[in-house]
């Protein structure tokens, strides 16, 4: 009976928030606050980035403090492709001519691929270590990319790139905030569904085992490095998609997207919502961005309050918002 009630609590939470998100543009119009649609698009995008981090952090136990690198690379991929498309110059002119593109069907998959590739390189190096080393190394590589883009004058350097317009998708007008919102919602929903299957699959079981004890997994015969690396790559690719979306949402990309504080904020979202739950980070992203929005109305110094709140969350509410909502026993599965 008890199990059942908790199961219901979790289902009710997920269904009601899905409903709320689905109806949000309508509610925003009714309330006469159309800017809510773009605020919530932003929430959905960060939710995607945070959920992708949860895959490696919550399930794999890998504390990456460089996740914004993949987010930023995804955004820059869209930005650079759009830049060349608008200027009608070549992205690559040798050995063969490759132009830019403003099509989401081209730019978004490329963004996923490029960030996944980068995640493979960074992962292959940083997964050789664990614990504190891993945290510092992921952080350092992300900062390396940050400085790389700062010094990349050809693409705006410090100032970043402004997109002429959002990407095109057949049959849709992404310039319309409501349509763009639903695209974000659909992509987040698809990711949560796929990731939910992933963590329950054989592959996911191996990842969860590695979180508990990597050595034990190896003694059972699992070559854990490959599994962890692939998980890192999947998470990086998904963060790249989130980056592609944020580039479209604000129609601007800059190195700031991959600054390490952005990585830390994505991490905060995951933990605020509850790690190892996939849905928790969505809640965490919503809570963080809404709180930022509300607090900054009252004081420009909202961080002076938010910092101690984070410390209190660590000390007293370790299971995050999702844990509080659904009961900590039933967070998983």
């Amino acid at each position: 009976m008890h199990m059942l009630s908790q199961f219901n609590r979790k289902t009710i939470c997920i269904i009601s928030s899905a409903l709320l998100l689905a109806l949000l543009p309508m509610l925003a119009t009714l309330a006469g606050e159309p800017y809510l649609v773009s605020l919530f698009s932003r929430i959905l995008i960060y939710a995607l980035a945070a959920a992708s981090l949860d895959l490696i952090l919550g399930y794999g136990g890998l504390v990456s403090l460089g996740h914004a690198a993949f987010f930023g690379i995804g955004a820059y991929t869209v930005g650079i492709l759009a830049h060349h498309d608008f200027e009608e110059t070549a992205l690559i002119s040798w050995p063969l001519f490759i132009p830019g593109s403003d099509s989401g069907l081209v730019a978004w998959p490329v963004a996923i691929l490029v960030s996944a590739l980068l995640a493979a390189i960074i992962g292959a190096l940083s997964l050789r270590t664990r614990g504190m080393h891993f945290i510092m190394i992921t952080l350092a590589f992300a900062q390396m990319l940050f400085f790389f883009f700062v010094s990349l004058e050809g693409y705006g350097g410090d100032d970043g790139l402004t997109l002429f317009s959002r990407n095109t998708l057949p049959g849709l007008d992404l310039g319309d905030d409501v349509q763009f919102y639903y695209v974000c919602l659909a992509l987040l929903g698809a990711f949560l569904f796929l990731a939910g299957r992933l963590v329950e699959s054989r592959f996911g079981m191996v990842i969860r085992g590695c979180r508990e004890s990597e050595k034990r997994m190896q003694s059972l015969g699992f070559p854990t490095f490959r599994y962890k690396l692939l998980c890192f790559v999947i998470a990086g690719g998904a963060a790249g998609l989130a980056g592609a979306l944020i580039a479209n949402q604000v129609e601007y990309v800059s190195p700031g997207l991959m600054h390490w504080t952005r990585s830390a904020i994505i991490l905060v979202m995951v933990l605020l919502g509850g790690s190892g739950t996939l849905y928790g980070p969505v809640l965490g992203a919503a809570a963080f961005l809404l709180l930022e929005e509300v607090l900054s109305i009252y004081t420009e110094h909202w961080m002076v309050y938010f910092g101690p709140v984070m410390i209190l969350v660590v000390l007293f509410a370790r299971h995050g918002l999702f844990g509080i909502l659904v009961g900590k026993e039933n967070r998983h599965g």
Partner: peptide, 17 residues
């Protein structure tokens, strides 16, 4: 997990374990 370990590779992403 112990059973899975000797059932070939675990790069299977869809079916629930």
């Amino acid at each position: 997990l112990a059973i899975q370990a000797h059932h070939g590779h675990s790069f299977r992403f869809w079916g629930r374990g």
